[in-house]
Amino acid sequence: MASMAGQLLGFFLGLLGFAGTIVTTLLPHWRSTAYMGSNIMTATAYMKGLWMECAWHSTGIYQCELYRSLLALPPDLQAARALMVLSCISSVLASLVAVMGMKCTHFAQRSVVKSPLVLSGGVGFLCAGLLCLVTVSWTTNDVIMDFYDPFLLSGMKYEIGLAVYLGYASSFLSVTGGLVLCWSSRERSQGRLRAQTHQPSAPPPPFNNLNPPAPLYRPPEALKDNHASSLCSLSSSGYRLNNYV
Rank of each mutant, 00 (worst) to 15 (best):
S237E: 13
P215V: 09
P150H: 08
I89L: 15
A80Q: 07
L71V: 15
E221P: 00
T135I: 04
A55E: 11
G178H: 02
C132W: 00
L162Y: 02
T105L: 03
L181M: 09
G60T: 09
N208M: 05
F107V: 09
T176N: 00
T176H: 00
S184L: 02
G17F: 10
K224E: 04
V143T: 15
G10D: 09
A34D: 08
L77M: 14
G49E: 05
L9P: 00
S87K: 01
I61N: 11
N208A: 12
Y158M: 08
Y67D: 08
S38I: 02
S235K: 09
T24Q: 07
L153P: 00
A43N: 12
V123K: 02
L16F: 15
Y168E: 04
S137I: 03
N226I: 11
L126D: 00
A5I: 08
L166K: 01
C182H: 00
S201K: 09
F151E: 08
S154Y: 02
A80S: 14
M100K: 03
S233F: 01
F18K: 03
A108C: 12
F147Y: 15
A214R: 05
L173Y: 10
L179K: 00
S171K: 01
L231E: 09
L162T: 14
T33V: 05
L96R: 06
P74S: 15
G14N: 09
S87V: 07
W30E: 06
N242S: 13
H198N: 11
P205G: 11
S236L: 14
P116M: 10
D146L: 08
P206L: 14
G129R: 02
L173D: 03
H106G: 05
A128P: 01
L193D: 06
E187H: 10
L66E: 09
M145C: 10
R31V: 00
N242C: 15
S90W: 03
